[in-house]
Amino acid sequence: MSWIDNVWSLMDLGRVGLVVGLVATVVTYLMARRRTTRVGYVHQGEHLLGSASDALPSGIVVQYDGLSIPRLTKSVLIIWNSGESTVLGSDIVDKDPLRFCVGADGQILSISVLKVGRQVNDFAFTSPRKEMSEAEFTFNFLDADDGVVVEILHTSTDRQPRIKGTLRGLPQGFRNFGQFTRPKPQKKKRSRPLSAFTAVVFSPLVFFCASLVYAFYGPRPEVISADAFNGLMGGLGGVSGMLLVNAWATRRKYPKSLHLESLE
């Protein structure tokens, strides 16, 4: 058999699909680990009083610190260094400081820090002024995965505050990863070593690699034709790839150090 025939024999549907999936997984991992400068945030909001379309009825008067408000909105932002490079607070541009911004139809009532990754990051914010929809904030530095959880009470119909401002070395600004989903509470497991072993053995990555090794070196059952076997291996590779993609897409984007049980 010539070398061309040998190469052609390897280029069946099942093996090609598994190899392509493996290469894509490795490339995705390497790209995710490359050194980048990026700060991101996710948000979650709800109307505590009133709604996005209507203010409180005229017969109902609600005051916050002596100020009558048409509605009360709570927004939570989780901000963290989602890159690899350290971000310095000294790089904040004075003429365009970093600031939280709510909708122009509302004003910020209060800001509170629910959790910080490390106290040494020295995250601070200015007290919101009356009838202002923006409030400035600063920090000392943010290493990879350093961050803060902030709660903002405001009167805007928009439940999704934005972060504006200019930081040297970060021309794209803070990256908005969108609304975060509340993670499901995890049940406590009695046997941690056994649970960890089970999670590794039955992980999509291990399943994918096992399918790849079997496709190349495993025996082919005589009762199954070569085409059917190749199709089966390709199907297993496709399912494993879908599981990997789903695990990546549904992962908790912000660091575990910033997780709060109250967010569940």
Rank of each mutant, 00 (worst) to 15 (best):
K74C: 10
V87I: 08
R38N: 15
L67Q: 12
L49P: 04
S82T: 04
V26A: 08
G21L: 04
D65E: 11
G66P: 05
T36Q: 09
G17R: 08
V23W: 02
I69L: 03
Y64T: 08
N81C: 07
G50L: 00
S9I: 06
V87F: 06
V16R: 06
Y41P: 03
Y29P: 14
T86C: 13
I69N: 01
M11A: 14
T36V: 11
D65K: 12
L30S: 12
L10T: 08
L72I: 03
V16L: 14
H47F: 02
L56Q: 01
G66S: 03
A24I: 07
P57N: 00
D12N: 15
T37R: 12
G14A: 03
H47L: 01
T36I: 09
V23D: 02
A24D: 08
R71H: 00
G40N: 09
L72H: 01
N81F: 05
Y64W: 15
N81S: 07
G40P: 04
G50Q: 02
N81T: 04
S82P: 03
V76T: 14
L67Y: 13
T25P: 12
M31H: 13
E84L: 15
G45I: 07
V76E: 12
S75I: 04
L72Y: 01
V16H: 06
S9C: 07
S75P: 01
G17M: 15
S58M: 13
L67F: 11
L10D: 07
R34V: 10
E84P: 11
V39C: 09
V23K: 02
T73N: 01
V39Y: 06
H43N: 13
R34H: 12
S9W: 07
V20D: 03
T28Q: 12
S85F: 15
Q44V: 13
V16I: 14
S9H: 10
H43Q: 11
G21E: 01
V19T: 10
I69E: 02
I60A: 10
R34E: 11
Y41I: 00
G14C: 00
L18S: 02
I78L: 06
S51H: 01
L30G: 09
S53T: 15
D12K: 10
Q44P: 10
W80K: 04
D54G: 07
I79Q: 07
H47R: 00
S85V: 15
K74T: 12
L22Q: 04
G59L: 05
S82Q: 05
G40S: 15
W8P: 06
D12V: 11
V27Q: 06
G83N: 03
A52V: 09
H47T: 00
G40K: 09
S51R: 01
V23I: 08
G45W: 08
V76F: 10
V62H: 05
V76Y: 07
I69M: 02
Q44L: 15
I78E: 01
